[in-house]
Write a protein that binds this DNA or RNA. Sequence first.
DNA 1: CGCCGCCACTTTGTATACAATAGCGTCTTT
DNA 2: AAAGACGCTATTGTATACAAAGTGGCGGCG
Lengths: 248, 248
Amino acid sequence: MFDTAFPAENARSHLAPAALRIVDAVLDALSDRNLPAGGKLGEELLARLFETSRTTVRQALQHLRFLGIVDIEPNRGASIARPTARMAADLYAARRAIEAQTVADAARYCTANDMRTMLAHIERQDAAATAKNRRELVRLRGEFHLVIAEIGGNAVLCHLLSQILPRCALIRALADPQPFTKRQIDEHRTLAQLIARGDAKKAIALMQSHLQINERQLGFSGDDQARVNNVDVWLGAYARPQAAKRQA
Amino acid sequence: MFDTAFPAENARSHLAPAALRIVDAVLDALSDRNLPAGGKLGEELLARLFETSRTTVRQALQHLRFLGIVDIEPNRGASIARPTARMAADLYAARRAIEAQTVADAARYCTANDMRTMLAHIERQDAAATAKNRRELVRLRGEFHLVIAEIGGNAVLCHLLSQILPRCALIRALADPQPFTKRQIDEHRTLAQLIARGDAKKAIALMQSHLQINERQLGFSGDDQARVNNVDVWLGAYARPQAAKRQA
DNA sequence: CGCCGCCACTTTGTATACAATAGCGTCTTT
DNA sequence: AAAGACGCTATTGTATACAAAGTGGCGGCG
């Protein structure tokens, strides 16, 4: 479905396959809520886990830093970002600003084929929700917003959105108590219809409320430090490609 | 003026000093319009020019790729991005979406001290314009928008803006025929006043027109391939820190 | 004479080795 | 016994060496 023209893939295309595996492993672990906030990501350790060199690991860490998933302090190394409530609010405010535009563009330029793409994607969301495949569902929910941005056709907005979506996923993994809900998929479906109809005004309004509802679900009460902090424990399962594939 | 809290600096803080020098050299060359679009940036060459290793060069190139200043093709290396008219339109559309929000936030949260910061910054813009210091003026014009975003207080929007501003600078360096104009600084001054007054509505409107005027000035008529393509020629002057300092 | 294939060279990608820095424990001194 | 300073260890930062891939030129063949 997503060929080389897909902006999110485009942004990753330059990465070495090995580095990409590490990035995906971290993102997968994030979707599964197996991320210890503030957990340290030693280069040597990752190199051993993924059977590659530190050079490649550093590539991956740089990319994750760019996505806001890890913090890198000079001479201190990388650790999982510890997003604050303020950061979450900023992030969602930014999303509202960006996605208001992507939705408007999508409503303007949506073709019949685009509508089919959206519906097919929503089908996959439904399937993932039915199968209670949390990781896939988290991935698809974010990806759907990218699909809309792609229909809008603004490559820059696509790129920006693909950057901040993983951070939203991180925040939700740490602070969202409600994993499975069909309502969001229903909102996606309604959104798709409004876009296909070209009703930009209503589509924007729905997107805004859709995002605000998501944001309000966040609660920063949970003490994230309570999670496992042994990175090799929680990342170990994601290191081997076959292990990751098997779960998916 | 800008301490560690400044988002743009924050995003660069992790880079090695040597890598930062390379990034700044490219950005300076860009401000001076000494950038051959599509020009190849060989790693070995840069390593020799900046008297460092290819490891550091690669770091800098990765960062420039993040900023959209260079394209990196696998096994082909890095080259200066060749932005299209479409890309420019997308970029400015994204800026309008983002800066509408930053201006609104700034108008809401602007303090007396923030106003002084803006005015002081505008003073520097005036000084650079009077001194016909093109590089400094280009830098300050972009930075002013970041100052506004900083006043707004949304770190994510600051970060996103700091990412796309260099690309705007690249596009203007390649396609903007009008280097020196005081009108933009006047607009900045008016914008500052509206923000300080808390008039979000008018401030947003002015920002939109400000950006649209800038965008309309762009003309993609010039054949950029006509420029020098010998990277060592145009970057040589920026390689040595003292050389760059001397011009500034 | 033109085109196709092969070989050499150039350039990038990856891994490893070395250097520098921060954190931490211990030892000494007051 | 407590506090400070020194040195050790663990981890990151940087450079170099080796491997792989791509590009261009040369020679043979049609």
